[in-house]
Structures are given as C-alpha cells and as structure tokens.
C-alpha cells in the first residue's frame, strides 16, 4: 500500500516541478523580451517610482494586458509575462486536484479545490476592493 502511494506522490511532484520550471522560463523569457522593447523605447527618459500613481487599466486587467502585449508595447509584454508567472502556482494547484483524484484521495481533492477557488477569486479580482 505504502509503496505505490509514495510512488504516485513522487511522480506527481516531478510532473509539477517540470510544469513550474517551464512556466517560470516562459515568463522570464517574455519579461526579458518586453524589457528589451521597453528599454529601447524608454531607456533615456527619467525613472520615477517615487510617487504612487497606480497602473492604467491596460496593465491591470487580463483583457488590457493581452491587448497591449499584442500591440508589442514593452510594458504590456512584460506584464503578460508576469501574469504567466502568477499563473504557474495556480496551475500547480489545479494539477494537484487531478493528482489527488488519481490517488482516490477525496479529502485532499476537496482541500485542494478550496485553495484553487481562493486563488481564482483573487485573480478574478473579486476579493479586493477594485
């Protein structure tokens, strides 16, 4: 009983680890490309992060980010990469639901689903005030 269970856990973790690594590499690549575009276009302007102004809608919503990334705006491409990065742990949790289901561990399917719902609520922006 113990051997197959730990084997599946180990196998599941290996797949998850590869998933995460691929997600991080893809995100880093996009952030880098976006960074090159951003620096080429705005490298000589003045850096100012002292005052908090918040980001425009095109950099805070999924629709806005994908639209500005598609226009090859440097900041848009970076933000899309960051969005992919934020999505990697969410993908890990989603995959774990399937993994626990495959192990017939109903209790942990429920626990993992709770975590997934909390994450999706946050990403959808329902949990915070705007």
């Amino acid at each position: 009983m113990n051997v197959p269970k730990s084997w599946t856990d180990q196998r599941m973790e290996e797949i998850i680890a590869n998933l995460l690594r691929a997600g991080v590499l893809l995100a880093a690549f996009m952030v880098f490309c976006g960074g090159v575009i951003y620096l080429v276009r705005h490298g000589r302007s003045l850096a100012d992060f002292r005052m908090f102004r918040g980001e425009p809608v095109e950099l805070t919503t999924l629709r806005g980010i994908s639209a500005s990334a598609f226009r090859l705006s440097g900041r848009g491409v970076i933000q899309l990469g960051l969005l992919i990065l934020i999505a990697t742990p969410v993908a890990r949790v989603a995959f774990s639901v399937w993994g626990f289901y495959a192990e017939h561990d109903r209790m942990y399917v429920v626990f993992t689903l709770i975590v997934l719902v909390i994450l999706l609520c946050s990403l959808a922006g329902y949990a915070g005030p705007g």
């Binding site: 952030v31 880098f32 976006g34 960074g35 951003y38 705005h42 850096a47 992060f49 102004r53 918040g54 980001e55 425009p56 950099l59 805070t60 919503t61 440097g74 900041r75 848009g76 970076i78 933000q79 960051l82 969005l83 934020i86 999505a87 990697t88 742990p89 969410v90 909390i118 994450l119 946050s122 990403l123 959808a124 922006g125 949990a127 915070g128 705007g130």
Partner: peptide, 19 residues
C-alpha cells in the same frame, strides 16, 4: 499568487520596476 492577483488589479505591479 493569492495576493498577487489583488495587487495586479490594484495597479501595484509596475512592469518597468518588476522586470
């Protein structure tokens, strides 16, 4: 990731700095 979603929608995540 749980708080990053909220920070993103609130405009705290600036691409120029985060890159």
């Amino acid at each position: 990731a749980a708080s990053a979603g909220i920070y993103l929608s609130r405009g705290y995540i600036d691409p120029g700095l985060s890159m």
